[in-house]
Design a protein around this nucleic acid. Structure first.
Lengths: 336, 336
DNA sequence: TTGTATGCGTTATCAC
DNA sequence: GTGATAACGCATACAA
């Protein structure tokens, strides 16, 4: 049988479509209980479900939010989504999830699709250096929250949720100096135009400068373990004094451990090891690895909460935009 | 400015809405190049984007697919989604993702929402023992693919993508027997009415029977590490002969390792350890842990591919439903 | 307390 | 080649 419509219910229940519409929208204030009951039964009998298509057409709002993450296979993104979802679903919003694959081109296409979908709001882990890539969103006055990364020239009235990448790495440098390290090797793997690893690199550099340590960046960007092994081999031969390896993103730690195994280097004896975002599995690797940890689920919740405020605004949503910086937790372990 | 509509373009370009619609849909066959160009410019100038709401209203199809996963914070689910997404996005489908939290109630609500959204297809990692929970989908003739788990009474014409859970565990039992183990402790953590862990348990039991090993299930369902530690302590005291612990799901391995550490048990010296789905991080834990590995991304791809076939069908979509069973890979490591 | 009629933006049918 | 117009299913202004 074809999908029942509001007209079917009206006919079967012997009332008008208006009354059925009122029923569907829980507007019982002025409705005789018996009418209400009659409609209720008919709805149940025909298994009627309001058409979201017609609804969003008629109303302003779609009750759909778009989310674009950089790489859903990275645990960061899944936890981010989980935080977003647990906020939005109870609030009556459905979520369209897109994976930009850390690609500027894919992201552009996905934004366009979501605008076509007329989403009520957008949460993006952005790939673009220039905010102009996102101006179509602002032109359409669509509530927007940026997460994790930030375009260089992002206006002050655009919401964002980030963590203290710079500060936490600067602090880490201090700790490493205290422990007697003289060299810090920063291992990054940046695939997108912008990355949270950038402020981490800067923070580390700043901290190393402050403590007279040598800071050596290794940008693995797309290279494999063999390449990394090679780089580390060349490096460690040349360095005097104790060296700490800092993995600036979760998945990078995998490659780092693989390279160390290959080189026969042990930690903390031969080198120190620190990592961002390993999601706690590394606690079982030897005696555990010293971690800098963010809370992506919390980030998602914050982002969604602010998005909801913007979406509930009567006037300019961006007036309610909030910029949130969460702290990074330090989980000590004897790997340094 | 308000969002431009097809009527705006028509007015500005001095043509009719029909012609604009033809342009939007790439129907240039009978259109003067100059008309086409005029529309093209106007569309660009007004940054016109077709309204998906109006489209889906008018047409049969929404070009939206709904996906319900059990727990998006489990890497299995993220990889599954990635596989689905990479197939559907290029095919012109947007994806609504829902997280059932392994809850029957949440799942019911989410199915209802997705039916309201009039999705063109549905991929579900199901929670319900009885297929009747999904019959509204079938009543509406909506293409459907079940993934990972399967209701007990699922009809033969409903598509599914699973892995050989039973067989791989039965084979594992054989391997353990060969290695001299006499006891197999199966560690499960089932939160939903059905789980891929169930056929794994059966396979293990079958295999243990065949090789005269003792099979002891520990159902952690929701309990914490302290509880598990207690259970293992009690157990290991009573068992004679070598014992292997088999973690039947990825996250369970965390708790298992924590308990072993607490008990001061080493592997493979004191006990053997095997796990499903650890996503390879455990290779750095001691000398690595013996794994049974599925490929969730591949599962997602298979599911989406079949869904596409069903969605492209003219008549009964279920006539094209395919049931796929993928194999489980064994990744050996000296933990047994 | 309930009903009638209009329009949301698009596509499809038919006319010119 | 192009245009006028009727639907799609619902919510609402306005009637009754």
């Amino acid at each position: 049988m074809a999908k029942a419509t509001i007209a079917d219910i009206a006919r079967e229940a012997g009332v008008s479509v208006t009354t059925v519409s009122r029923f569907i929208n829980g507007n019982f204030s002025k409705m005789r209980p018996e009418t209400r009951q009659r409609i209720e039964q008919t709805v149940a009998r025909l298994d009627y479900r309001p058409s979201a298509s017609a609804r969003r057409m008629r109303q302003q709002r779609t009750h759909v939010v778009g989310v674009i993450v950089g790489d859903i296979s990275n645990v960061f993104s899944s936890l981010l989504f989980k935080g977003i979802y647990t906020q939005l679903q109870p609030a009556g919003y459905d979520v369209m999830l897109m994976n930009s694959n850390n690609s500027v081109d894919e992201e552009r296409d996905e934004i366009s699709r979501l605008l076509s979908q007329e989403v009520d709001g957008l949460i993006i882990q952005p790939n673009c250096k220039r905010f102009s890539a996102y101006s179509p969103i602002v032109s359409a006055s669509i509530p927007l929250v940026m997460v994790d990364r930030e375009p260089d020239d992002q206006p002050g009235d655009i919401a964002k949720v980030t963590v203290d990448n710079h500060g936490s790495c600067r602090t880490l440098a201090g700790l490493l100096a205290e422990r007697g390290y003289e060299n810090v090797v920063a291992l990054s793997n940046i695939r997108s135009e912008i990355s949270a690893q950038m402020p981490r690199l800067e923070g580390l550099r700043r901290g190393c400068d402050e403590h007279g340590m040598l800071m050596i960046p290794i940008e693995a960007n797309g290279h494999d373990v063999a390449w990394l092994t090679q780089e580390l081999r060349a490096l460690t031969g040349r360095l005097a004094g104790r060296t700490a390896l800092v993995s600036l993103m979760g998945p990078m730690l995998f490659d780092t451990l693989a390279a160390l195994r290959e080189l026969g280097l042990r930690f903390p004896e031969d080198v120190g090891v620190v990592s961002f975002d390993d999601w706690r599995w590394s606690q079982y690797v030897r005696q555990g690895i010293h971690l800098l940890e963010q809370d992506p689920q919390r980030m998602g919740q914050e982002a969604a909460a602010n998005l909801l405020e913007q979406m509930n605004a009567d006037a300019d949503p961006y007036a309610l935009a909030k910029q949130t910086t969460l702290s990074v937790a330090e989980i000590p372990a004897p790997s340094i």
